[in-house]
Design a protein around this nucleic acid. Structure first.
Ligand SMILES: [Mn+2]
Ligand SMILES: [Mn+2]
Ligand SMILES: [Mn+2]
Ligand SMILES: [Mn+2]
Lengths: 219, 219
DNA sequence: AATATATTTTAGATTTACCTAAAATATATT
DNA sequence: AATATATTTTAGGTAAATCTAAAATATATT
């Protein structure tokens, strides 16, 4: 089904809100994210309802149909694949790519996106550690926990950060820690909560509890 | 200056028509290319005139301002760089990329396009042999002539085709001839106008006058 | 030069995606 | 439970980009 840019942005927003807020998304929350007025949201919900993308009960909330979820996940897929392209191939920093991906996610060509996927080596996560849905609209959401809460002697993948201040990013850069890198926890120091970890390149570094608290991992 | 997609498409069309038809572009020719009605063209010309992108004299024709030409050439630059990306990196055939580039040319990020340019190795022509304007809106248009009219004993580059039927494309593919390839003319046969040429890989092939007529080259 | 034909513009509508202000409804507070 | 507050919807309006039909102007033909 062919959707306008505006329709795609509303669907994507409803999808993201559904993940956080569960069921019954409010017009207010949608309008805040999209910088529109709640009355404009009502208008669009009518359109998306007619197109069977959502269920909308007046004065209550919005829920996605399976059809709408598939569409939303396809846009998310495109967004995240383009982000990988921008970082991996064009050497953007991972904090510069979101706005451009907001535009690229609306490019309409299934063949393009499958070829891009292949060109990128079928990545499973984007530069922010978020999972990339497949063609069928399936997505594997691994729950992310703080590195500080992880068990030792396991090999883990860093998939995200709680804090993203330039200072923190520079520090991680200097230590050779980046999103997507695999690490092994060697020891946890009870005394101050610091942690000794081994990087992929066999280097061993020590990080404070403040740092390990702000690093998200999956097993 | 920020332009809408529609404004960008009109500007680009006026630019392309200016190259072919010289001065005083007609509303009719614009409407034919964009599949709109001449009255819609009149409306848009008013907008572009207000934005100082074109000069428009009622009932006469349209001419581009320097400002408009720069904008148009930036869109052409983006279009052609994306076409190179699609063919060189994503392995599209060169006859499949135009429609996708029509979308990608509207993505708005100067940094993106300069990084893409670098990633592609600063190409000077697109997959159809058309020159890529630089950041400053400068473009080197080499005049293209038929291979049949070329002098012998010179090394030439194939930059385009007059005919693009699938049969002709398949024939060229089989012979190892493609856009961008360098050839040397060894001999022209007076008798039937056929021609012996050497390809980059040192192979020598013979082509008929019908074929050499439909191949465009620059020196 | 007068007339016929083609092109361009104007006038008035339509659709999409927004808006504001006011009415309807739901939720929170006393 | 009644009232106050917050949310959502409706009603009516705007701007962009299109359209059709008719008027204005330019170009071609006799
Ligand atoms: Mn993003
Ligand atoms: Mn992301
Ligand atoms: Mn093209
Ligand atoms: Mn091209």
């Amino acid at each position: 089904m062919l959707l306008s840019f505006a329709e795609e942005n509303y669907l994507k927003t409803i999808y993201h809100l559904s993940l956080k807020e569960g069921k019954g998304i409010s017009n207010n929350s949608i309008s805040e994210i999209l910088n529109t007025k709640p009355s404009s949201v009502t208008d669009m919900l009518k359109k998306l309802s007619n197109k069977k993308m959502i269920h909308h009960v007046k004065y209550y909330g919005v829920n996605m149909t399976e059809k709408g979820r598939k569409e939303a996940l396809n846009i998310v897929r495109k967004h995240r694949l383009w982000e990988v392209f921008l970082v991996e191939k064009l050497k953007f920093n991972w904090d510069e790519v979101h706005e451009i991906a907001e535009q690229l996610e609306h490019i309409n060509s299934q063949l393009l996106i499958e070829k891009l996927d292949e060109f990128l080596g079928f990545p499973s996560v984007d530069p922010h550690g978020d999972p990339i849905p497949n063609q069928l609209g399936e997505i594997i959401i691994k729950k992310q926990i703080s590195l500080s809460q992880a068990l030792h002697d396991v090999t883990l993948t860093i998939v995200g950060l709680k804090e993203t201040s330039p200072n923190f990013l520079k520090y991680l850069d200097k230590m050779g820690v980046y999103i997507g890198c695999k690490i092994t926890i060697l020891e946890k120091i009870e005394f101050d909560g610091s942690m000794e970890i081994r990087l992929e390149n066999k280097k061993t570094i020590t990080i404070s509890e403040v740092v390990s608290n702000n690093i998200l991992i999956t097993e």
